[in-house]
Simulated scan of single mutants.
Amino acid sequence: MLRSMYSGISGLKNFQTKLDVIGNNIANVNTYGFKKGRTIFKDLISQTVAGASGSTATTGGVNPKQVGLGSQIAAIDTIHSGGSTQFTGNTLDLAVAGDGFFVVADGNATPPTAFSNPQYTRAGNFYMDNDGFLVNSDGKYIYGFADPAAATAADTAFTKADSAPVATTTATGTKPTFSGGAAEKPIRIPTNAQSMSVGQNGTVTFVDSEGTLRYAGQLVMVKFPNPGGLEKSGANYFRETSNSGTPFYSVATEQGMGKIESGFLEMSNVDLSEEFTEMIVAQRGFQANTRIITTSDEILQELVNLKR
């Protein structure tokens, strides 16, 4: 009886964890770039009552007799399938159609000239700060290749015009280099620019005060051999882990990276109908395990009553 009771307890704990994951998925159904979780169970150790035996000249073989002792969590996966895209019409709302993450990072100085502490995200709601730098809602700079001299305090434009430099990448796991020799720097738009746009390959251009189309930079993207190994660090960010593999940097539309859709945002990949179905199954599983515990308790009570 105690074995069945402890098996029921293990089931309760696991279904509670499953409900926690489902609850988090539902809570983030409208979170841009959110990737849903999935709970996988596996059985616990089994006690062997009698071992297997092979066939003989007079009898056939006998299978082992085992009693399972409950279940445990095998994995809590992050599912990196793409979410649906929502049209916003905002130029700096960017969705990735395909593989890859945006890279956001802190600046190393004021004004920033390089990056530190990079993190990865699929949430592409970006903005311009008061100095014209492209940032996310937390003020982190978008990882890109540019020369901030393209937008100095005097708002003089970088001489590179209407097209981005040709991107060439080196070995897997290294960052791309550009034929124009641009360094990794935050992308900045002059404060007096008339308009700006972001191409499908991440090229950022703007129309200066004189009506000339200018090049501002190109967004860098990253992907991993095992995106499921990334660690969620909150605020729509992922971090590299020892099991995510070496990050591969490139630009959109090249070397397996998805394209960037300006004016769209990627919604959560949570399917409410699927989550509600999983919630019903988890609820019934939880209830069934409570019945195991209460039934075991009733049987133990009957055994105690034998003494009366």
Rank of each mutant, 00 (worst) to 15 (best):
M221W: 05
S233R: 13
M257S: 11
K259C: 08
L219N: 06
S250M: 09
K232F: 04
G256R: 12
L230W: 03
V220N: 06
M221N: 06
R239S: 08
G229N: 10
N226D: 07
K259M: 13
E261G: 06
R214P: 09
M221V: 12
F238L: 04
E231C: 05
A235W: 06
E240D: 11
F248L: 07
V220M: 13
T246P: 12
R239K: 10
Y237A: 07
F238W: 09
G228V: 05
Q255S: 09
S244I: 06
L219D: 02
Y237I: 07
G229Q: 07
G258K: 09
Y215G: 01
I260W: 08
R214N: 11
T212R: 15
F248D: 10
K259Q: 15
G258Y: 01
T212F: 09
V251N: 10
G256T: 14
G211I: 14
G229W: 05
Q218R: 09
N236I: 07
A216T: 03
A235H: 04
N243Q: 11
E254F: 07
M257P: 00
G211R: 14
G256L: 13
G217C: 01
L230T: 06
G211D: 12
A216W: 03
V220Q: 06
E231L: 13
P247L: 10
Y249F: 15
G258C: 08
L230H: 02
S250G: 14
A252R: 01
P247T: 01
Y249I: 02
P227S: 01
S244M: 02
F248M: 09
T212Y: 08
R239T: 12
S242V: 15
S244G: 08
G211M: 15
M221A: 03
S209K: 13
M257T: 11
T241G: 10
M221S: 11
K232T: 13
P227I: 05
E240C: 07
R214S: 05
E254P: 03
F238A: 00
E261M: 04
K232H: 04
A216I: 04
P227D: 02
Y237T: 10
T212S: 15
L219I: 15
T253M: 11
N226C: 00
V220G: 12
